[in-house]
Simulated scan of single mutants.
Amino acid sequence: MPTTTRDGTTLQYRTDGDGATVAFVPDIGVGPWFWGWQHAGLAGPFETLTWAMRGTDGSDPPAGPCSVATLANDLDVVLRDHGTDSVHLVGSGLGAMVALHYARNSGRVRKLALLAGAATGDAYDPEPLFADPADAGACRETLSPALSADFRAEQPDVLDGIADWRGDEDADRESWENQRAALDGFDAEPLYEVDHPTLVVVPGADELLDPEAGRRLADELPRGEVVTYPDASHFVGIERSRPVNDALLGFFESED
């Protein structure tokens, strides 16, 4: 897979498909596996770009605590290395905050889709999600706060697969903590400066990020629109992959 380097840190990414580029910005500590459901749904009509944040999969670990700006600058280097001048961004959790920051500070972004997102870092408590990648049991058990009880009961094989992928690609404790530091003090205000068409996907049963923060985000963005899945938890793109993918396709294919 292609790699690029920023400040001595190697960053790995992957692209598939043709057409306008959709880049995916992952949640805290998770590898590119996280976007497998959306990647499969959008590659073809679009070119998809998935990126391993520092400390996950084939990217080097962070040298110290990250900021949202650090992660957004990493994204910029990946997009420049690939030759991407115009991009739709999809971010989840911490990745939604990185996407917001990047959209404000870059001329590359056309549209935003923010899953389980918020305008401030203090709205998100990801600690229950962490698992040591070497602990297969924990990789499965700590999915409980991220996926609803119904989904876990109905799709145990999916949970087993996710646990395996987490063991292969997710961040260890040190890298996870350095990513988590990006939440400290993050504030995307003033949101009126982010005037891109933005789809905000709110999982109504999110245990890690207050759903009201997502609704406020949609209300305060000048061109924000919201879609809510009342019974879905934090990993809404996995739980509701088909309707979420349909919403993303319709949003990105529509006229600005």
Rank of each mutant, 00 (worst) to 15 (best):
R80M: 07
E169C: 11
A153M: 02
R104V: 14
P61C: 08
E127R: 09
A23F: 04
G83N: 07
R140F: 10
A188V: 15
L209K: 02
R140D: 06
G161E: 11
M53L: 04
V200C: 15
D81N: 10
A118Y: 07
A188K: 06
D7M: 04
W33H: 03
Y13T: 02
I28K: 02
F151I: 12
A149M: 09
E177S: 11
P211A: 12
A20C: 06
V202T: 08
E177Y: 12
P65A: 09
L129T: 14
A188T: 15
V90G: 10
V202I: 02
R216H: 07
R80T: 12
E255Q: 13
V90R: 00
L159K: 07
D27N: 11
A99F: 04
Q155R: 12
D57M: 10
M1I: 11
A205K: 06
L79R: 03
F186E: 07
E193Y: 13
E141Y: 14
V25M: 05
A96G: 15
G117H: 03
F186L: 11
A99Y: 07
L143R: 08
G167I: 01
M97Y: 07
P190I: 00
L129P: 14
G91S: 09
E225T: 15
P128M: 13
A218M: 08
G204D: 06
A149W: 06
A138P: 08
L89D: 05
S233G: 14
G64C: 06
V227R: 14
G224H: 11
A43H: 04
P211T: 13
G185Y: 00
R242T: 09
G117I: 01
H82D: 12
G137L: 04
D168Q: 12
E239S: 12
T56V: 00
G167C: 03
G58C: 11
V201G: 01
V200W: 13
W33K: 01
A182Q: 09
D132P: 13
D210R: 14
G19F: 04
L159G: 09
R6Q: 01
P126H: 10
V158G: 15
D57C: 08
V244G: 12
T48I: 05
T228S: 13
M97W: 07
P62F: 03
G185R: 00
Q155G: 13
P26R: 00
R80I: 05
G93N: 05
E220F: 03
A153T: 10
E220M: 08
H39G: 04
G17T: 01
S254K: 07
H39L: 11
R140I: 04
D60K: 13
A138R: 10
P203K: 01
W51G: 05
S175R: 01
S144Q: 12
F251H: 06
A163Y: 02
T56S: 00
A96S: 14
V22Q: 02
G237D: 03
D125I: 09
F252I: 15
P128D: 11
G121C: 02
W37A: 04
R180E: 07
V194P: 03
Q179S: 03
